[in-house]
Structure formats: structure tokens, C-alpha cells
Amino acid sequence: MAEKRRSGVSMAEPKIAKADSEEEFLSQLGVAALLRGSLLKLVEARPEDPIGFLADHFANLASGSEAADCGDAEPSRTVQDRLSQALWNLNLAHHSQRSAFNNNVRVAYELLMTGGQHLCPGGGVRGRIYTELLRSLCTEAGLSSSTSAPLLRRIQCQDHEAVPFELFRQGVLICTVFADYVRKSQSLYLAVCGGSEVPAQRALCQAALGALRDALDTTQCADTARYLEASAKIAPCTLAQAMVSAQSSYEAQAGASMDPEEFEKEAVALFTARIQPVS
């Protein structure tokens, strides 16, 4: 504020009225409300790069108001805009930052709900937009459509359905967790390869996948205990033992190998099979 006043004074020392007109000017443009709203958004999302966040945020606002000025000539374009805004919000915080992530999901949900004139009678986001969002989430995370298709088939909704918030949140969370899972399984394959260019041995891959399946199958006990047990099952030493015993087996001697695509497919299948289909 001191800065502002100083420059104002240096510009027009004798005219006291100047300051008033500047305040008037700003209030006419609604600058105070604009800044307040933006700061609230900023501290709510707490992005890593606040300057970039503000640049994108104001650009969003500007393109929003420019679109409004153009009238409703292109409704499909504004749906696209809203989708990309929602995606941008969702990518602000990693899902392990759960409360920030949930906030952003809420913001995205409200963005998509008000999107367009066709509000659902029951309230909620349209199934078509929801499915579109999940697909874009997977693509943005670098997943190929063949990788994400089986999962999306399970969690997508019918085009005409209205998606309630809880389902929306679950769907978004599943997609982001899934993307992390696929990345982890890719690095697991690289670890099995041992950094060499040669495809990994089939027996070793199967041992790793088996350990992964065991861990995912831990379902009997309460949540906390389950996490502990599951992580024990894929602990490095357990995995190493499984791989040592696999290496001495018959198949290892046969020298068969597994390429990364097949490994990823197997790992994806393990994950997807454990997602309850919607509807």
C-alpha cells in the first residue's frame, strides 16, 4: 500500500483529489473484489507456484468474461473451457495432500455443475462431462487409452445420469491414484530389468506381480492393520525372496522374457479388477 501511495504522490503532488479519483477508478473496475476473490482462491489451493497460479487464474477469468461478451454463440466451447479449468484445479495438489485435494475436487465439481445452460434436474454433474473429465485426467497423466480404458469402463457413468459429489470425488481419486500406480509399476518393471536394455525375465516378472497381487488381496482386517500387512507383503526383502526362488525355478532356466507392455497390462489388470463397477 505504501508503494501505491508513494507513486500516486510523486505523480501528482499538488492534487489531493487525485487519490480520490484513483480509489474511485479502482472501485469502478471492481478491483478490490477481484483481488479478494483471487487471494481466497490462492490460499485455498496453495499451489507450489503462486505467481503462475495467479497468471492462469486471471487468464481463466479474462477468457470467461470474454466468452460471456461473445454471447452463447459456442456453448460447446465453454464446456471445453470449464473442463480444462476443472482439470487445472484438480492438478494443483497431489492426492496425498488430501484436504487440499478434496477442496480442489469440490471447486472442479461446482465448475462443471454450473457449466452450460443444461442443468440436470436432480442436480449434479452430467455423466457425459464426468466421463470426459476422467478420460482427460488419465490422458494428462500420460496413460495410453488402452491402459486406462478397462478402468474407465468400470467407473464411467451414462451420459444422461447426474453424478453426485461423492461419486465424482471417488472417480477422480481413483483416476489419480491409478495414474500413480501405473507409474510405480513401470518403475517396478525397470527395477526387475536391473537397468539393462534386455527385457526382464518372465519368471522374475511373475514373482513381482504375484507379490503385488498378494498385497492387494489383503482385505480381512481393519484398515490400518491392512495397510501394514500389505506393505509388509511388498517390502523389498519379501520381494527379493520371491524373486530368488523364482530364479531357480524351471521357467527361469528356459530364458523366457516379458516386455514392459505385457507387465503393465498385467499390473493394470490387478488394479482394475479391484474397482467396483459403478451402476
Binding site: 471492481g30 477481484l34 495467479l54 492462469d56 487468464a59 477469468l61 479474462a62 468474461s65 470474454e66
Partner: peptide, 8 residues
Amino acid sequence: FGVSRYLA
């Protein structure tokens, strides 16, 4: 160009 565009 509008305040938001300027700020952006």
C-alpha cells in the same frame, strides 16, 4: 482489455 486480462 479488461482488468483480468491485464493482471493475467
